[in-house]
Design a binder for these strands. Structure first.
Lengths: 345, 345
DNA sequence: CTGAAAGCGCTTACAG
DNA sequence: CTGAAAGCGCTTACAG
């Protein structure tokens, strides 16, 4: 509860001005090496830690970035993606002694309002935009605001902000060729929300592949990533006359739910049904059989995003150059496990 | 990018002093109703939002609280608990226009250091302490620091800070009686980390019950909550000569992994093995059969914790009175599903 | 009820 | 190399 020590205390103890203390502490020229050393020593033994608010007010930077999540508590909990992403972001951020401010929102409007407020308050120096949609209005909104932001997903054509993304097309082709090689000809896909950018990218990639390889059928049904929907759609797919011999899920939660439905219907996996999941979280190794999946390192992805945002904030580059910060990550790799096998249909 | 509007701008536009603007904006006496209305109108149309740093510096409060998570990215991702808790916390916080600062740490030492720094910097006004351990050193540490904190878990005897917790003993009795009634006599439990407070509380509760009901055996094996460990321990349990007919898991991730192992060994659930999980996340309904579990509303729990912390921060009450803020939540309820049934061993 | 001023704890030109 | 001062944008006693 003791009063906090300020630069004034250090200045008094060292017999110098507050300005000198500031220069010494921030490693800037303006003080001799000997005074700097003395000041540093005193600051150290007094346990000095600069007050954030005062610093922020002076330099007009929050030393923090924000992330707004537009998902329900349930989805956020069950979907390992977000926490892994946040962990990665956070690791890079705290290394740069930046804070992460998090807010959960219900609607886009609310999300935009949060950005406006955060920026007006200077509570954050930048934000991460998750779940990039097709024609996402947030992109222009934050750009107009002048709020530094990075798109966690992409690529975002003509956007005025950097993006960090994975090529989703290549893995789609990889899965399809793999399933084809295993003899599967009737494949189905339980896709994600069709308003999301990566969903449309995958949609297109699968369509391309089926145009090349002669699959008998390739049904795509869109869903909302929840286990309930994943199960419902799987039930429908497996109840059809010519049921698919393989199903691809756009996330792991739905894939696990799909496996549950297969068990429920008495179908052996992979004997009678092969299952492929996207986003290989530990969830995929919890089940029996373990799920074949498309592996990406989401935590590393988060770190990447944070690096780009920090660069963007630190840079004086005009926003038009910001695009050059965009980074494309290594595409997801196929990790074959027990849930896929030859088709015997 | 336009310059932010400050109270000075509003004062100039309204023809009053900055002080008057501040009073008007904060709903404090010191201005007539007519001036207040005029100021509010002008502030509104100028889109005024107060600068956080300036406000924080003046009132010496951060308008933010922090949460440090000492878990790996993988655990944080797979365990729905944390994101659900955070969502709940966040909902209450943002209603009070408080921010949430999050940091992931590796060790206790690092965690304590984060608290020290956050508080010295006045980056937060208080913190949440998760994963309360037996004789948890963090409790005294934050109290000594004078950093307002609430223990997310408990009860913490003689602690100098409020706690929000569930009674774990009652649900343990409930499960045991339920399993007993189903005819199970050989039960096993895959428990959580034994250094955690709630693990010891459950340990004791199960021990008490087995002293009353005549179970043939009640094996308890401690683990680390990961699916790998859950699977490994389950494999060991089910390979023993007199294998248990029911297994209770201290979290849902291990329970799902356990179900996977049962499938792997060709054991039918619940015909040959009953499974009970703690912390009923959507994960428990993803599997087939769905998992019987102990249901708690973690999101509501998070909200509760946030309310207590906000009260604590707002209150001028001496820390010794803080304990009266402690709240005990409704204990977990048993939700019977397909994974439990009569014992036929 | 209102205005002018000091202060929160930093940073940063500006003189010596 | 060093010191004294102004300023960041608020809040809050203190006089009128």
């Amino acid at each position: 509860m003791a009063r906090r020590v300020t630069i004034a205390d250090i200045a008094a103890a060292a017999g110098v001005s507050k300005g000198a203390v500031s220069y010494a502490l921030n490693g800037r020229p303006g003080v001799s090496e000997s005074t700097r050393a003395k000041i540093l020593a005193i600051a150290g033994e007094m346990g000095f830690v600069p007050n954030r608010a005062a610093r922020s007010l002076s330099v007009s930077s929050a030393q923090a970035v924000g992330i707004a999540l537009r998902r329900t508590a349930r989805t956020l909990g069950i979907e390992p993606y977000f926490m892994e992403l946040i962990s990665g972001i956070e690791a890079t951020l705290s290394a740069g002694s930046f804070g992460l401010t998090l807010q959960v929102v219900d609607t886009v409007e609310e999300e935009l309002e949060v950005y406006r407020r955060w920026w007006a308050e200077r509570r954050v120096d930048g934000v991460f935009l998750c779940d990039i949609g097709v024609g996402d209005q947030r992109l222009d909104f934050v750009a107009d605001l002048g709020l530094p932001a990075v798109a966690v997903g992409g690529p975002v054509e003509g956007a005025r902000l950097p993006a960090v993304w994975h090529d989703d097309a290549e893995p789609c082709r990889e899965i399809m060729e793999y399933l084809y090689a295993l003899g599967h000809r009737r494949v189905a896909r339980v896709a994600g929300l069709s308003r999301l950018l990566h969903t449309t990218i995958r949609d297109a990639a699968y369509a391309e592949t089926t145009a090349v390889l002669d699959f008998e059928s390739m049904t795509t049904l869109h869903s909302d990533y929840t286990g309930e929907e994943g199960a419902r759609i799987t039930r429908r797919l497996l109840s059809s006359a010519k049921r698919p011999t393989a199903i691809i899920y756009d996330n792991d939660v739905m894939a696990v739910a799909g496996l549950g439905v297969a068990h429920e219907l008495g179908l052996d996996v992979p004997e009678q049904l092969s299952i492929v999941a996207w986003d290989d979280s530990p969830l995929c190794r919890l089940t029996h059989p373990a799920l074949t999946s498309l592996t990406r390192d989401i935590t590393a992805y988060g770190s990447n995003c944070a690096e780009v945002l920090l660069t963007l904030i630190g840079a004086e580059a005009p926003s038009t150059e910001a695009r050059t910060f965009s980074v494309q990550c290594r595409p997801a790799q196929l990790s074959p496990r027990g849930s896929t096998g030859p088709a015997f249909a």
